[in-house]
Write a protein that binds this DNA or RNA. Structure first.
Lengths: 70, 70
DNA sequence: TATTCATGTAAAGCATGCTTTCCATTCAAT
DNA sequence: ATTGAATGGAAAGCATGCTTTACATGAATA
């Protein structure tokens, strides 16, 4: 899964640390999401989407697992 | 988080077992989601939404955590 | 009644999300 | 050159998602 979090966050002129505080997660969590180290839980995805007044689908891009049998 | 999975699944006339197979998860996972034992990962939420051709927000209802400081 | 079908649910174990702590890097401004 | 601000990222530990296995229940039907 890819995401536009860094781009969206920067377009709002907010630092990772302040976004993290607003969402009540750690700064490392935001950094890890932006750099693709892991995917958010659905609860965090909702929090992020609500914070930016976007839908989850606006921020997170699901790529169908075409090679699901390997 | 609440969800409309059972309602949506039934409106499509599909059994838990067949939905599970289509989504490549176990039947227990579907049952657990429908009965609120846990929330899906965002990947599974995307799979479910795509399967029913709905958005994640159409299926899963995020309720703001008003009492976040306890 | 006995059987079958769909669902509920629990337990143990593994994978992943998230935390805290810690240190490194980059860049702007002294 | 040094400092401070923002970010990158690793490690260990806890919480949660998901699996397999197993058993129970209710409804429908042979």
């Amino acid at each position: 899964m890819k995401n536009k979090l860094e781009e969206i966050r920067k377009s709002h002129g907010i630092r990772q640390e302040d976004l993290a505080a607003a969402l009540e997660v750690s700064r490392q969590t935001i950094g890890s999401l932006e750099n693709g180290r892991y995917n958010p839980s659905i609860l965090l995805a909702f929090k992020i989407a609500r914070y930016f007044q976007l839908s989850i689908e606006d921020i997170f891009i699901y790529e169908e697992d075409v090679n699901h049998e390997q």
